[in-house]
Design a binder for these strands. Structure first.
Length: 875
RNA sequence: GGGCGAUUAGCUCAGUUGGUUCAGAGCACCUGCCUUACAAGCAGGGGGUCGUAGGUUCGAUCCCUACAUCGCCCA
């Protein structure tokens, strides 16, 4: 006993058992005859560090994987990292800048060398951190989205889709990030409401004295105006038909046009049209055949074509434009205005809608099977509310801009020769052959080819993840892909439902003809107490590794899961891992108690212990059924809470208290072995949630052979149980609780033995011995009628008495009984209101009426008992 | 602006195909205990007219309508 500390110390056990599991290769999977259970990790950014979102995400996956492993599945959890094109490139650019090196001064090759160096230096840290959490990933299968197999998979898919005519190149309005100097997808733009100004500017009408007034938030783009527009139904502007106006600051004449798009109620009802810099204007421009004038450079400065403020940054240009308009007398007024500003998710720079030549993947056709899979439940989304959200997105899906003006990523395999003509091929050599054929120029050499400078969107590699993880693109018929695909469940955050989940489903159908996973489990976002998203800049995110060091990995896992109902955000605070740690400590001390029992095989098993074992087995079976149900619905926090209560309340709080021998005495052998059996079973139930402490205890519980581990034991299966028996025990618990209350109220010390009196039939089952044991009774006496000078309580329809030496306070007892009587009579009145209602009696189902009649009878009996007791006391 | 969802105890959430003694849990809170596994503990306790107003029904926290508030997604 002295060598086992009273507080569980997690750190030592954690490193010990994790190394043991690794050394024995328990996480590794190879195809065999068992049913597979596969999960591919949502790959974290290769140079990222673990944050609370990863903790939640990976704890969840580990719980599912460990449970499945214990259920006999061949489990395979594939880890890996994502090259995170924009994020990583931005970090490398910043790092180089801090060393005085600008990206534009480097060649592509030199820059990529730096990027790889950075990746090798910082890459994989996050995976090491996951090991601290206990993640049972198959580390022998660790992947990277830019490793050779994944790289070639991406290129192969690009070529294939291009050949199928689904990838095309075109000029489109894209979201331009002037800081990263790249296009970003619609999904990477975050809109927030920001304060801005609305400028009222007048445009002179050509050939007349008058003006039209336009309201705009962007005076600097006036330089790119190619029309002014009003709604055709707006009579205020009917006279403008066929006229032209002069754009201020330039002397350009542009037409006044009419389009339904314009909202007459907004501003002056008159809109300036800048097709190069607004998506709606662009579409109006297409309808009316307007010219486009791009007034910005790629870095957000004003371009030559602006004609004014050339080379000046767009924000400064806005100020200058305001001044200039004022000077020209064209600025009529300026109002404060709140509008939605789109910013780049990565750089937070204000997105500029910009026309540019990009690569696109057409989505319509791919979206169809992906939508059907969700609608017909081939793939189940949990929580189901996202089904609608998904459908809405898929029905309105737009083509995916897949090119990025970056270097870090999969370079687009298009090779240009001559005048903008190009071929798409896996290598330069192959491209040369194709180009010679296509161009009819046999003398073309490698030097004449120029590969596209752009790389592909990061998601263009991660959408292949469940297939590429098993090399199913390069070798579509290899044993791994055939065995592990489709995977079982994808665990991720709802914010990447479209970015990633939807596209994986599309790729799954396109390249395997099958869904990539059967379930999608979307967990919440980790926030702080004030519901703010956890972020580095806010400094409100705890450091996961220090949390593990403080509370233990098991404690942190429990803390994460406890507050994580599916689909709801979790409000994290440190009391949660603290609760987890406390639970681990509780388990530890229960174990400590059990192994320090002295046992004596000659002692006969007490009746209370025998009853306790029977009840505990029933309680376990019931809880196992509940846990199964919770897991089936991905109610993981519920499953954990069920196991938590089973261990803490039922096993520690109740069972152990019943079987615990009196001080100094030994435990009978039978109860001892039953208790060990039960503890072992509980460890297996808890193992998926708390892998370390359960392994530590399991290993200490008996002789274990080298190579044995609780993680490879079978999860107990829910067996039959007798609900009536469990109910009898609940009554027994209520009686115990009531007697304890009397002890407390009457100040009766625990050591003093009491007598419990009850009418025949009120007790007398297998749990009497438990009541005697837990209440420290000398006996349960069967009596008839009332007992004078006794404290009383009522459970269901039975009345119980505890005689007290010095008698009881009559007045107080009368008061209590009167309160109880008033409440009970009130209840009877509500029952009678129903039963006296003819319509209720004639309409309600028989079952319900029978129940109400039983309520009535029981309540009347109880009232009679209370009244009798009162008259007894008042004598 | 369009769509989706939510509103139940101080906090975070369960719940009911509308009827089991008039709503449960965890945490927090209050009271009493250093009782020989555990004070990271034990025993006991308080706390909700289920967002508001109508409607359907014998009966509504649950179904319908409107309103209010909040959140998410899309434009």
């Amino acid at each position: 006993m002295t060598e086992i500390p009273s507080k569980y110390e997690p750190l030592k056990a954690e490193s010990k058992w994790y190394s043991y599991w690794m050394e024995k290769g328990f996480f590794h999977s190879v195809p065999d005859e068992r049913e597979p259970y596969t999960i591919v990790i949502p790959p974290p950014n290769v140079t990222g560090v673990l944050h609370m979102g990863h903790m939640l995400n990976n704890t969840t996956q580990d719980v599912l994987i460990r449970r499945a492993r214990m259920q006999g599945y061949n489990t395979c959890w594939v880890p890996g990292t994502d090259h995170a094109s924009i994020a990583t490139e931005a970090k490398v650019v910043a790092k180089l800048r801090s060393e005085g090196i600008e990206k534009r001064d480097l060649s592509r090759e030199a820059f990529l060398d730096h990027a790889w160096e950075w990746t090798h230096k910082h890459g994989g840290i996050i995976l090491e951190q996951l090991k601290r959490l206990g993640a049972s990933c198959d580390w022998e299968r660790t992947l990277f989205t830019m490793d050779d197999k994944r790289y070639s998979s991406v290129i192969k898919v690009f070529i294939d889709l291009y050949n199928k005519g689904m990838i095309y190149r075109g000029v489109r309005m894209v979201n331009w990030d002037p800081q990263a100097r790249t296009a970003v997808s619609d999904e990477e733009v975050v809109y927030t409401e920001e304060k801005s100004k609305l400028y009222y500017v007048r445009y002179k009408i050509v050939g007349e004295e008058g003006y039209v007034m336009v309201a705009t938030t962007r005076p600097e783009t006036i330089l790119g105006d190619t029309a002014v527009c009003a709604n055709p139904s707006d009579e205020r502007y009917a006279a403008m038909k066929g006229k032209h106006v002069i754009v201020p600051m330039t002397d350009r004449e542009v037409p006044f046009i009419f389009d339904e798009y314009v909202d007459p109620a907004f501003g002056t009802g008159c809109l300036k049209i800048t097709p190069a810099h607004d998506i709606n204007d662009y579409e109006i421009g297409l309808r009316h055949n307007l010219a486009t004038i791009d007034v910005f450079n790629d870095d957000g400065t004003m371009s030559e074509r602006a004609g004014l403020f050339i080379g000046i940054d767009r924000f400064r240009a806005k100020e200058l434009a305001e001044e200039e308009l004022r000077r020209l007398g064209a600025l009529v007024k300026v109002e404060d205005y709140i509008n939605k500003i789109g910013r780049s998710e990565r750089t937070h720079s204000v997105i500029e809608p910009k026309l540019s030549l990009q690569w696109f993947l057409s989505m319509k056709e791919m979206a169809k099977p992906a939508l059907d899979a969700i609608l017909n439940d081939t793939i189940t989304i949990v929580p189901a509310k996202y089904k609608n959200v998904y459908r809405h997105w898929m029905e309105n899906v737009r083509d995916w801009c897949i090119s990025r003006q970056l270097w870090w990523g999969h370079r687009i395999p298009a090779y240009y020769y001559g005048n903008g003509e190009f071929v798409v091929a896996a290598s330069a050599e192959e491209a040369l052959e194709k180009a010679r054929l296509a161009g009819g120029n046999k003398n073309l050499s490698l030097d004449d080819l120029k590969q596209d400078e752009d790389v592909l969107d990061t998601w263009f590699s991660s959408w292949l993840w469940p297939i590429a993880a098993f090399d199913g693109i390069n070798k579509p018929d290899n044993p791994d892909i055939n065995y592990y695909y489709p995977t079982r469940v994808l665990v991720t955050a709802p914010e990447i439902l479209f970015f990633w989940v939807a596209r994986m489903i599309m790729a799954g159908y396109e390249y395997r003809g099958k869904e990539p996973f059967s379930d999608v489990y979307l967990h919440g976002i980790v926030r702080d107490r004030q519901r703010r998203k956890m972020s580095k800049s806010l400094g409100n995110s705890p450091e996961p590794i220090s949390l593990i060091e403080k509370y233990g990995a098991d404690g942190v896992r429990v803390g994460m899961l406890l507050c994580a109902p599916a689909g709801n955000d979790l409000l994290f605070e440190e009391t949660l891992p603290e609760q987890g740690r406390n639970f681990a400590n509780k388990i530890w001390n229960a174990f400590r108690l059990i192994i320090t029992f002295k046992t004596d095989d000659n002692i006969k098993q007490p009746a209370a212990s025998e009853a306790a074992v029977r009840w505990m087995d029933g309680a376990i079976n019931k809880t196992l059924a509940d846990i199964d149900d919770s897991f089936a619905r991905y109610r993981i926090s519920d499953a954990l809470m069920q196991a938590y209560k089973l261990f803490w309340d039922d096993f520690s709080g109740t069972y152990l208290e019943i079987i615990k021998p009196e001080f100094g005495k030994a435990l009978d052998g039978r109860t001892h072995s039953e208790t060990l059996r039960i503890l072992e079973m509980l460890m297996r139930i808890l193992h998926p949630f708390m892998p370390f402490i359960t392994e530590e205890i399991w290993q200490r519980m008996g002789e274990r052979t080298d190579g044995s581990s609780i993680m490879n034991e079978m999860m107990p299966e829910a067996g039959p149980y007798d609900p009536a028996m469990l109910n009898r025990f609940e009554t027994c618990r209520e009686i115990i609780s009531a007697v304890r209350t009397i002890r407390k109220e009457k100040n009766l010390p625990l050591r003093e033995k009491l007598v419990l009196c009850a009418a025949a039939g009120s007790t007398g089952n297998e749990f009497d011995s438990v009541i005697i044991r837990m209440c420290n009774l000398s006996e349960i006496r069967t009596v008839e009628g009332k007992i004078a000078g006794a404290a009383s309580f009522r459970i269901h329809t039975s009345e119980f008495f505890v005689p007290i030496d010095e008698g009881i306070d009559h007045e107080e007892e009368i008061k209590k009984l009167n309160e109880e009587l008033a409440y009970t009579e009130g209840f009877l009145a509500s029952v009678m209101a129903k039963l006296d209602n003819e319509k209720f009696v004639s309409n309600a189902p028989e079952k319900v009426i029978a129940l109400e009649r039983k309520k009535e009878a029981d309540t009347r009996a109880r009232i009679a008992t209370l009244k009798e007791s009162l008259s007894h006391l008042q004598k």
